[in-house]
Design a protein around this nucleic acid. Structure first.
Length: 306
DNA sequence: CTCCAGGCCGTCC
DNA sequence: GGACGGCATGGA
């Protein structure tokens, strides 16, 4: 991979095992819009990016001076996915079709607070509606970041701002029964900031400190239980946060889709979530998160097990 | 009109 | 500890 910086444009050359569209559309994040063929506007932390990819070349427009390494880390571009896929196929050749079709997905390293709130919203909702609510919350409480293709983009509200949002405010944003859950999450997020005595820090740094000092010493099971202290967070939401934000690549979230897909591919009949969890752990081990995402995206696209 | 959505909670046994 | 209904809202 080669990186060239020219004013507000960052160009990545010789990319491998990466597709921006696949990475954003696979269901791991909700704060983006497709604005043209192979062109996406996406928000990470308090940055807006507009990326256009042609084969192994990606050009990203930025909207304020920032650290390139932040974007590289967000997109997980410094990891050897060829090696991961090779190892996964060695463990289980049944992943072949999924990896062949969706093998250019990368697992993002997203901001903890936004990922947590987004996946609390995600329960019992379809992806387009999750995206709408995330955009609405950002528009109402976040900061304006820039415009792309006629649409305005806003940051997801930071923790300090979240702490001022009341249950009824969330209800007005059509979050329904999730409103008290979102409120409780914002209280917990704020308590982390207080507990760690984080003052006067930049947004990304606050995120780093929470990840390091609250979750850094925990294994994936401990982190999941810690997250479940938040109302409205169960096994599935917790594992999504583990995988897509806290970098536990062995987390294997089980939702209605992955359950049906696993039953279709491996079991040929209905099995419990616990059984699937155990099976995935044995089969994929520390690479479970990658396998889960290839399977989820592939299966959802194919309508497997519907 | 019905049924379901990247689930989880409270209550029941 | 396992099963089950309820839950807000929107789209098929």
């Amino acid at each position: 991979m080669n990186i060239i910086i020219n004013n507000e444009y960052i160009t990545f050359e010789n990319l491998s095992d990466f597709d921006l569209g696949q990475t954003l559309e696979c269901g791991q994040c909700f704060h983006f819009e497709k604005i043209d063929e192979d062109e996406y506007a996406f928000v990470a932390y308090d940055n807006l990016y507009v990326g256009k990819q042609k084969e192994d070349k990606l050009i990203v427009q930025t909207f304020r001076p920032g650290d390139v390494s932040q974007l590289v880390n967000y997109l997980d571009l410094n990891r050897d996915y060829a090696k991961i896929k090779k190892e996964l196929l060695k463990r289980d050749n049944k992943l072949k079709a999924a990896i062949h079709e969706k093998g250019e997905v990368r697992i993002l390293n997203q901001e903890f607070s936004e990922t947590l709130m987004s996946f609390i919203i995600s329960q019992n909702k379809q992806i387009p509606h999750i995206k709408k609510i995330v955009a609405d919350i950002s528009k109402k409480y976040g900061a304006y970041l820039g415009s792309a293709n006629g649409s305005d983009f806003y940051s997801f509200p930071d923790i300090k701002t979240l702490s001022k949002i009341e249950i009824n405010d969330y209800k007005e944003l059509k979050t329904g029964f999730r409103a008290p859950y979102l409120y409780d999450a914002s209280v917990k997020l704020n308590s982390y900031v207080d507990e760690l005595n984080i003052v006067n820090k930049e947004r990304a740094e606050i995120d780093n400190i929470i990840k390091r000092d609250i979750f850094g010493q925990l294994n994936v099971n401990e982190a999941r239980e810690k997250l479940k202290e938040i109302k409205g967070v169960g096994d599935k939401v917790a594992n999504c946060v583990n995988l897509f934000s806290l970098s536990y690549r062995n987390a294997f979230p089980i939702d209605v889709w992955i359950k049906r897909i696993m039953e279709d591919i491996y079991f040929k009949n209905e099995v419990s979530k616990e059984e699937i969890q155990e099976y995935a752990e044995k089969l994929y081990g520390e690479l479970g998160g990658y396998a889960q995402q290839y399977l989820f995206f592939y299966g959802r696209d194919k309508g497997l097990g519907k």
